[in-house]
């Protein structure tokens, strides 16, 4: 029955080990994604969003990171069970990734065109000439003149580098694009351009996408589904409407409370007090309970299971209301 599911991540657990200390970066994360759809993962820095993406594409730095459990099924095939050779064929072809910082994500010693051409030659059965031509077309597609093929990254601005990276990621028409904060390092006008570009290319190529960001505005503009990540767990999951119109978890509510709104006049934004828990010493119960304004004794005793609130809307909070109570 799950065979037609495009991507499904089940109970993913990732740990980092450093100096005999175990850091629980990702704890039992599960989500599903259909073809052509976009999932937004939002959360604070260090919540484990990038680790989730890196474990899907299989480039976690090992050591120190280690996948301790779970399954990542891409079209029914468990990526965690595949050997290196097999994964190399999937990386760049079926799954590709756009990294956070365009300044450092390109090899400074290689012509940008060749960096795109390289991935084409690797995965497509084409001649060197055709690969070069394809790379030039990709450059044009992201709005860079094709004669800049022979230039080096230091001759490009940050926004252009990010476009090169996007061209590289999309060169082999991947089924799944992992975009790890693709706009964080860019200024606002370039952000808009890059987002528009990703949006158009995604529609053109029918690519599914996981978009990692802490910008709720970006999520609203691009995503179909949203997962809110806190301390390595997805604490709330649902469609864009579920999350934006009916935020249920106190953390999600807190996130929206900390966001200035154009429509309403608010004297003060309400921040979430405290800091995320130390991932090497996670609380026994709900990981948000130390900061939660509504926490009870029961919250601190045992881990909270995901509860279905109707449809696809799920929440990891024992106080979450039943769908009828909304």
């Amino acid at each position: 029955m799950k065979d037609n599911q495009f991507l499904s991540v089940e109970d993913l657990v990732v740990e980092y080990t450093s100096n005999d200390q175990v850091i629980h970066a990702v704890n039992r994360v599960s989500f599903r994604l259909d073809k052509g759809q976009t999932l937004g993962l939002v959360g604070e820095t260090g919540a484990g969003k990038t680790t989730i993406a890196k474990s899907i594409i299989g480039i976690l730095p090992d050591p120190p990171a280690k996948v301790r459990g779970g399954r990542i099924l891409l079209e029914g095939e468990d990526l965690l069970q595949l050997d290196d050779r097999h994964m190399q064929k999937i990386r760049g072809k079926k799954i590709s990734m756009v990294f956070q910082d365009p300044m450092t994500a390109l090899n400074p010693n290689m012509k940008v065109g060749h960096q795109i051409q390289e991935v084409v030659e690797l995965h497509e059965n084409v001649s060197r000439k055709e690969a070069e031509e394809h790379a030039k077309r990709m450059l044009e597609m992201v709005g860079i003149p094709r004669d800049r093929f022979y230039e080096y990254p230091h001759q490009f601005s940050g926004g252009m580098k990010q476009r090169v990276i996007i061209a590289m990621a999309l060169a082999c028409k991947p089924d799944l694009l992992l975009a790890d904060e693709p706009t964080t390092a860019l200024d606002v006008t370039i952000q808009a351009q890059v987002l528009e570009l990703i949006k158009n290319l995604k529609v053109e190529q029918q690519t599914s996408m996981i978009l990692i960001t802490h910008d709720l505005g970006v999520v609203a503009g691009l995503c179909d589904y949203v997962g809110v990540v806190y301390a390595g767990e997805i604490i709330e999951y649902g469609t864009l409407e579920d999350i934006f119109d009916h935020p249920t978890h106190p953390y999600t509510i807190g996130l929206f409370g900390a966001l200035p709104s154009m429509g309403k006049r608010v004297k003060r934004l309400s921040p979430i007090h405290g800091l995320p828990p130390d991932p090497s010493k996670l609380p026994e119960g709900c990981s948000f309970s130390p900061r939660c304004p509504r926490a009870t004794e029961a919250c601190k005793k045992a881990p909270v299971e995901m509860r279905n609130l109707g449809g696809t809307h799920e929440c990891r909070c024992i106080l979450a209301d039943k769908p009828g109570d909304r």
Binding site: I57, I59, D84, M87, Q88, K89, I90, R91, G92, K93, S96, M97, F99, D101, T104, A105, L106, N107, P108, M110, E118, V119, L122, H123, I165, M168
Partner: peptide
């Protein structure tokens, strides 16, 4: 560095990552 992660994400073999990037 990040570009080595990029090279890995492209699906390059370990040898190519080491000696080319």
């Amino acid at each position: 560095s990040d570009y080595v992660a990029t090279a890995k994400a492209k699906g390059l073999a370990p040898g190519a990552i080491k000696y080319k990037h």
